[in-house]
Simulated assay, not measured.
Amino acid sequence: MAAQRRRTLFKPCIDLHDGQVKQIVGGTLSDAPESLKTNFVATKPPAYYAELYKQHGLEGGHVIMLGKGNTEAAKQALAAWPGGLQVGGGITDQNCLEWIEAGASKVIVTSFLFPDGKFSAERLEKVSRLVGKERLVIDVSCRRRDDRWFVAMDKWQRITEMEVCKESLDMLSNYCSEFLIHAADVEGLCQGIDEDLVEKLGEWVTIPATYAGGAKSVGDLELVDILSDGKVDLTYGSSLDIFGGSLVKFDELVAYNTAARRAAQQ
């Protein structure tokens, strides 16, 4: 009997800014507060969302600290579901083990790997050695330049020299167990995913990967599944009802995951 192919799943997120759960238009995130466009600011604490995801068995979600002032909020989320969430944003060789001890299942790194915008193999090797490959996620969030994508760091405002392509992902996958890819140009806009990028990721990735940016309907899960041949998972933000959105219901995503997992077991 042929093995059932992997299916795209919904992966949840908790984005933190100034200690609160928020949904932000990715391209507006910078050190200039007046340029920031925020779609949603939660009245509930981070732990509420962590507990909600735990209740529905939504493993592999990520907590992202967007800038300073989010440490305590992130620790509250991790404490609500120890071992159930990944954490990223300001992760370095100096604090990566502290976050594992605080309850993170994995740590997510980006900017630390690119001092002065240039990739450092030495830094990658060091953080991978410290936490172990299985507990490291590399965030290759990117911005599009014509028909290519380049890793973006420092709140997605600084474009690095690393192109997101098969060669770079193959190299990075030697040191981590998963990728997180925000398409920063469409993040928070609810105007659709970057289909070209998702299709390419399906061709390139050899380890689990989660795409974020622009998802606006439950049908986007099927779309990502088709485009990536089930190799890429999808996260939702501003379009989701638990984040003030009106386009996607959280319960529908939970139901989709349940059905997808059941199909995979048949």
Rank of each mutant, 00 (worst) to 15 (best):
T110K: 04
K231D: 00
A184Q: 08
A73I: 07
G103A: 08
Q76W: 13
G83P: 02
A73R: 07
L78Y: 01
I193Q: 07
L66P: 05
G61N: 01
S141M: 02
F243V: 12
R262Y: 14
N257D: 07
S177F: 05
V140F: 12
E101C: 04
I91P: 12
L221E: 04
V107E: 03
A212C: 06
R262C: 13
V107C: 05
G132R: 03
I64S: 03
I138H: 06
V254N: 03
N257C: 03
G88I: 06
E222H: 15
I108H: 08
F112H: 09
C176K: 01
S141V: 13
Y48K: 04
T160H: 06
S35E: 15
Y49I: 05
W149M: 00
Q86N: 14
G89L: 11
L52G: 03
D18W: 13
I108P: 07
R135T: 05
T92D: 08
I64H: 07
I91Q: 09
Y256W: 10
L247G: 08
D147P: 10
A2M: 15
A32Y: 14
S30M: 05
A3L: 15
I108A: 09
A184W: 08
K200H: 12
W204I: 06
P82A: 00
T235F: 08
S173I: 00
K216Y: 13
S217R: 11
S105K: 14
W81A: 10
P208G: 06
W204V: 04
Q76A: 13
Q266F: 11
P45L: 01
L136K: 04
S238M: 08
D18A: 15
Y53L: 02
